[in-house]
């Protein structure tokens, strides 16, 4: 029992990180109808920026770990704002009212550009982000189960940060006039313009928000695994999450992430031995495939019905 719970918990923690990346997809898709293929590249770019800034700050003799991380985070956020602004100016603004596919192809281009630019500015080695998260696991429920459960403190903190971010975002979307404008733009570009919502500013805002989400995801992944090129492929792991949860739903991204995280771990442990292991790698994609066959809009997505 203890072992089962431990696996479950590990899955939930990993899932939370998938959710964080998936959230970036959902945000941009909700607000502009663009499937942003570059989300993974943005995670890498943000993480690289933060890793190098904190390294640089450390070298310049700023002792305090908290201060270093705070400043590095802020600087990386500013970099992500610039990236958002440039993307809007040079790419999105030229493509207003174009087909979704055209925009998707454009983000594919942005992916390669960002990956290249990130590595040529910040370097292509493996860097580390040290945000001072405790690495040692703690024992819990020792009295309830024989042997207790090992909980990774680092995962626990990561999950907490992710939860806070999600709460903030839903507050922003539901309660502020800018959030309302974002939802309006997502539904209908032209109508939004007719009531005086400035499309261009909204796009910059949403790419900025997605940039910050990418930064948080990059920071947590980076501090766990180190910042390296493979971070960009984290986005591919988050793809099944958005298919599962629905592209238009923030709660969907969270729950989708958790389901996939847990599913991966449990199937690896309990089904793995029968098929020779390695389930973790393909489990999410098979699940996504099944969902596409049965419920293509995902768990929480909007069903799209075209009236003829």
């Amino acid at each position: 029992m203890g072992f089962f719970l431990e696996t479950l918990l590990g899955g939930l923690m990993a899932g939370m990180l998938y959710s964080l990346v998936a959230l970036g997809f959902v945000l941009i898709f909700k607000a502009s109808g663009v499937f942003n293929f570059a989300q993974g590249a943005m995670v890498l770019f943000a993480a690289l920026a933060m890793a190098r800034f904190s390294e640089w700050l450390n070298a310049s003799g700023l002792g305090n770990l908290w201060l270093v991380n705070l400043i590095a985070f802020a600087m990386a956020a500013v970099v992500m704002f610039c990236v958002a602004w440039v993307i809007e100016r040079l790419v999105l603004r030229q493509l207003v009212n174009q087909e979704g596919t055209t925009l998707l192809m454009a983000t594919l281009g942005i992916t390669y550009f960002l990956e290249g630019l990130g590595q040529s500015i910040f370097g292509s080695d493996i860097y580390k982000i040290d945000i001072g998260m405790p690495k040692e696991p703690v024992m819990a429920f020792e009295s309830t189960f024989p042997g207790g459960i090992l909980i990774n403190q680092e995962d626990l903190i990561a999950a907490l940060i992710a939860a806070c971010l999600v709460a903030l975002l839903s507050l922003f979307f539901q309660k502020t006039s800018t959030g309302r404008a974002l939802r309006a733009v997502a539904d209908d570009h032209q109508a939004a313009q007719s009531i005086g919502i400035p499309l261009n500013r909204i796009w910059v805002i949403v790419w900025c928000v997605a940039g910050v989400v990418a930064l948080v995801a990059g920071m947590i992944w980076g501090s766990k695994l180190g910042v390296q090129f493979s971070l960009a492929t984290v986005a591919l792991r988050a793809l099944p999450v958005v298919i599962l949860g629905g592209l238009t739903s923030v709660p969907g991204a969270i729950i989708g992430g958790l389901i996939i995280g847990v599913g991966e771990k449990l199937s690896e442990v309990y089904l793995g031995p029968y098929v020779g292991g390695g389930i973790e790698i393909w489990f999410a994609y098979v699940l996504a495939l099944l969902f596409l066959l049965v419920r293509p809009q995902g768990l929480f997505g909007e069903k799209i019905i075209d009236r003829v």
């Binding site: 309302r180 939802r183 309006a184 539904d187 209908d188 032209q190 109508a191 939004a192 007719s194 238009t248 909007e302």
Partner: peptide, 8 residues
């Protein structure tokens, strides 16, 4: 042709 924000 109506251009309302349908989900809202």
């Amino acid at each position: 042709n109506l251009a309302l924000f349908k989900g809202m």
